[in-house]
Design a binder for these strands. Structure first.
Length: 456
RNA sequence: GCAGGUGUAGUUUAAUGGUAGAACUCCAGCCUUCCAAGCUGAUAACGUGGGUCCGAUUCCCAUCACCUGCUCCA
């Protein structure tokens, strides 16, 4: 961006132009929920399509699925989320600092004995050993409260514990439990990939930065199943492939960086984020993980269904390794908005312009009659025709200059004006958003001209 | 979850213990033949709930939401 824009200004921008609205706004809002408006959902869907093109269409042996949000509860036991997503939290009554009880004990003893303790055992241990708050050095804690990051609900009409189901906290398990289904039905050989776009839910209390951290969020996930030994090469490959994807979407390379993890999640042997430089600092927009054979092994154990692959080349049977590359869709939308937002100084004026990749733009062409009473009939005719090919907008109010600006600020790459020449010789003036250059085209050439320019 | 800040039309804001004025935007009309022109008109706001008070947008309390910084998570 040429001009710094704060998170607050971006929030207002998104509201003003119909990209993103606060969730349940008329009721005062619900924390960390945001609704995509007409332009925001177009942008988001275009990003999904761009991802599909790069990750499914243009790659060999890659398949998209659409798994259910609700899955068998055992899935989350196998994945480790039931255990590791419920942290035993404890608050210091003196300084109000919140801690994890198991960490307090483990740090105190320099061991991992708390990992096998129950809640009561942990409370007692802290009391007996007079473990102090690391912040204020006093020992006056609340009870332990377990806070599970997974949203729980119940199937059936009774709130019986046996009927607990979870909203998925990640999409990945949908791909893993369908590994064999996809492999058989698509006759896949390793390595192959399963991608999925969908919503996931995490019941986090932590505040978000606009849509950066929300309780409901959408991911574009890509799981590549491979032979052990080929995993690290693929891992490195997908890190770079992901970065290139973001650059192709229009994010500047200097606003991106890799962040290798030292502390790893329970399922991963290697993890690296791609981060974007947001106003609040660097924030993760992609995560690439080497999940090894952890997930499929766990599902084999919990389901008693073999998750092995018979390698036709070597006749070996083994559980594949998985390289996961996850894209936070809402975060990608936000990063792209920040990247695209510009304020340009003109001679006596300035313009706000969203320099989106044309493929991502909500509208591809704005159709503008030069003078409403002379040209609007013809313009509507052309608008109707072009709308068969791509999203168009139509604007006949206020001056032509103002209408150009309206198109600029929402990222429409092309404007065509309908004037007397259109009526006489069937030509229109086509104007580029980025350079404000104009060319004259025959009406019948517009669609194919634009189609060519909006490719991803 | 902690600390601080903010909350008045879509946006930016003004004033006020006696229910609010503007600019921009948007809409309608006039004008206008290529980059936010002009004129006329219209719509539109005190986050929510309590309390004090004859009366609260204003003072107090609570709550909700957002922003900033921590913390946490990945």
């Amino acid at each position: 961006m040429d001009k710094e824009i704060s998170m607050e200004q971006m929030t207002n921008f998104c509201k003003n132009y119909g990209f993103i609205f606060q969730g349940s706004e008329i009721y005062g809002g619900l924390a960390n929920t945001w609704d995509y408006g007409p332009l925001g959902s177009r942008l988001k869907n275009n990003i999904k399509d761009a991802w599909r093109k790069r990750f499914i269409q243009q790659r060999n042996n890659a398949y998209e699925i659409d798994a259910d949000i609700l899955m068998h509860p055992k899935v989350w036991e196998a994945s480790g989320h039931v255990a590791s997503f419920s942290d035993p939290l404890i608050d210091c009554k003196e300084c109000k600092m919140r801690h994890r009880a198991d960490n307090l004990i483990n740090d105190f003893t320099s061991s991992s004995i708390a990992d096998s303790m129950t809640k009561e055992e942990m409370i007692n241990y802290i009391k007996e050993n007079n473990i102090k708050c690391p912040n204020c050095n006093k020992s006056n804690f609340t009870d332990i409260r377990e806070f599970n990051l997974m949203f729980q609900t119940y199937r059936g009409v009774t709130n019986d514990n046996k009927n607990v189901v979870y909203l998925r906290p990640e999409n990945a398990q949908g791909e893993y439990v369908n590994f064999l289904n996809v492999q058989r039905s698509m006759r896949c050989k390793l390595p192959f990939s399963i991608g999925q776009i969908g919503k996931a839910f995490r019941n986090e209390i932590t505040p978000g930065n606009f849509t950066f951290r929300t309780i409901e969020f959408e991911q574009m996930e890509y799981q590549t199943f491979c032979k052990k030994g080929e995993d690290m090469e693929l891992y490195e490959y997908f890190k770079e492939y992901g970065k290139k994807f973001f650059i192709d979407l229009g994010i500047k390379e200097e606003d991106l960086r890799f962040h290798d993890h030292e502390k790893l999640a329970h399922y991963a042997s290697a993890a690296c984020d791609i981060e974007y430089k947001f106003p609040f600092g660097w924030g993760e927009i992609n995560g690439t993980h080497n999940r090894t054979d952890f997930d499929l092994s766990a599902h084999q154990k919990y389901s008693s269904i073999s998750q092995t692959y018979l390698d036709p080349d070597t006749n070996e049977k083994y559980i594949p390794y998985i390289i996961e590359s996850t894209y936070g869709l809402d975060r990608t939308v936000l990063a792209i908005l920040f990247s695209a937002y510009h304020v340009e100084k003109l001679e006596n004026d300035e313009r706000e312009v969203l320099k989106l990749h044309p493929f991502l733009s909500p509208y591809k062409v704005a159709v503008l009659p030069l003078v409403k009473k002379y040209h609007s009939e013809k313009a509507k005719e052309i608008y109707k025709k072009l709308s068969n090919c791509f999203m168009c907008s139509y604007d006949e109010t206020a001056s032509i200059g103002k209408r150009y600006r309206r198109a600029d600020v929402i990222g429409t790459p092309f404007c065509i004006t309908i004037d007397n020449e259109t009526l006489n010789s069937n030509t229109v003036t086509l104007r580029f958003r980025d350079t404000m250059e104009q060319i004259v085209l025959n009406v019948d050439e517009v669609a194919s001209y634009v189609e060519d320019k909006i490719k991803f």
